[in-house]
Computed example of a mutant assay.
Amino acid sequence: MGSTLYRHIAYCTDFSENADQAFVVAKDLAWRYGAVLHIVHVMVTFATAPIREMYVPLEMDAHFVEKATEAARSAILERYVSRLKEKQPYEIHLLSGYPATEIVSFAEKNQMDLLVTGSHGLTGLAHVLFGSTADRVVRKAPCSVLTVRLKQAPAEEA
């Protein structure tokens, strides 16, 4: 009988370089434990962002949402699903809203055993305004969270 420590592992991606490194860890853990790998991407909708007074000159019409969903699904298939081992079980979950809130809610509703995410996604002004999604997820998640740090290139010797 296989281990049942992790049956459902959620890998959360914002398509950053750090998220790509976290994928390697998530797919390996899912394979080793025989777990279903849930690939989760949250499309940010500004209506749910913490700063509601922000002016966004973009209409979130159905066509735009459909195109964004299609692009995210294609990116997941190309960047992640194509790298899974043969017959490795996975599910794709495209959510919309505020990333930390949606990830925590997803983990609660779907009884995830582990969340795997990059430690840093957004940078610059977005990070200052919204803070770290990983930090919020770690504080509020109903299960363990593994944050994967971006590996830095080794410093060259003088």
Rank of each mutant, 00 (worst) to 15 (best):
V24A: 14
A71I: 05
P50V: 04
H41K: 07
V36G: 05
A155V: 09
K109F: 00
S3N: 14
E86R: 11
A19S: 15
P154R: 02
Y6R: 07
Y11Q: 05
Y98I: 00
S144D: 14
E78T: 14
L125E: 09
V104W: 00
A71V: 05
A72H: 12
L146R: 11
L84M: 08
G34A: 04
E17M: 10
Y80I: 04
G124M: 04
S105D: 08
F23Q: 12
N18H: 10
L95S: 05
V116L: 07
E91G: 00
H8S: 13
G131H: 10
G2R: 15
T147D: 03
S132P: 13
A107Q: 01
H41F: 09
D113V: 03
K109T: 03
V128P: 00
L37N: 12
G121T: 06
D113Y: 06
K109I: 00
L95V: 02
A35P: 12
Y80F: 12
Q21K: 14
V137Q: 10
T69R: 14
K151F: 01
V40E: 09
D113H: 12
A71D: 12
L95W: 05
V81M: 04
R149C: 02
A141Q: 06
L125A: 14
F130K: 03
D61N: 15
V65Q: 15
Y80S: 04
V137R: 13
L146D: 06
E102W: 01
K27F: 03
V25N: 07
Y11S: 03
L37V: 10
V24K: 13
M112H: 09
R52I: 04
T13I: 08
E157H: 10
T13Q: 09
E157Y: 07
A72I: 04
